[in-house]
């Protein structure tokens, strides 16, 4: 029961407190690039969640059964980039063949994620945080959902900005960045929530 509670906390921490986009500022590129329309933002969020889960499932064993025995922990970054990039390509090929419907929905986003820093970040952080395999997967799921949440929320914010008369110098990216910082500030309110809950 205590363990289940801990897993839930890891999940929720990934979604809210340690939101990768809004608190750790990872994965900003797709966050700004694909958040113009709700549908696209949602598709991208789902694709990132999926890739995070698969990437964690592959990189975790690689780290502990290939790098640790050879004392090559410092290779993790470059090895993970390599493996994740290849993996995403592989998943795309397989999806195209066997689940064309899912490929049609996610296919456009998959190449964008090949070297996404949020995906790399979550795999590296899982190891730094000392999670075991199950905890790593739960954490990846949480971070993925957090990314999805941030994308969907921000797509809503952006659709409002589009219709507002911004000053000439702020039009386009500047006003989007300001909006992103305000959304990020809002998420700052979640920090410390779990410490209070646990105490």
């Amino acid at each position: 029961m205590e363990y289940l509670k801990q897993l839930t906390l890891i999940l929720m921490a990934g979604v809210l407190v340690n939101n990768y986009v809004l608190q750790k500022f990872l994965g900003i590129c797709p966050f700004l690039g694909v958040s113009k329309k709700f549908n696209q933002a949602f598709g991208m969020g789902i694709a990132v969640t999926f890739v995070m889960l698969v990437a964690t499932a592959v990189t975790y064993p690689l780290y502990f059964y290939l790098l640790v025995p050879n004392k090559l922990e410092y290779l993790e970054t470059i090895l993970f980039i390599l493996v994740i990039a290849a993996l995403v390509q592989f998943v795309e090929i397989v999806l195209k063949k066997f689940i064309p419907a899912l490929h049609a929905a996610l296919g456009v986003y998959l190449p964008l994620i090949t070297t996404n820093c949020a995906v790399l970040g979550v795999t590296l952080n899982n190891i730094t945080d000392g999670y075991n395999f199950l905890e790593s997967m739960i954490s990846s799921l949480g971070v993925g959902i957090g990314f999805l949440l941030a994308m969907v929320l921000f797509a809503g914010v952006r659709s409002r900005i589009e219709n507002c008369p911004a000053p000439e110098c702020m039009k386009g990216l500047p006003v989007t960045l300001v909006a992103a910082s305000i959304v990020s500030l809002a998420f700052l309110g979640f920090s410390g929530v779990f410490e209070t809950l646990l105490a």
Partner: peptide, 25 residues
């Protein structure tokens, strides 16, 4: 380390090539 990285890269490359041939649509 060089060999390990090289091996991983080669395995990935072979895997992708095989996949693109076998799973070609």
């Amino acid at each position: 380390p060089v060999l390990i990285l090289l091996a991983t890269a080669v395995i990935c490359a072979v895997l992708l090539t095989v996949a693109s041939i076998f799973f070609a649509v």
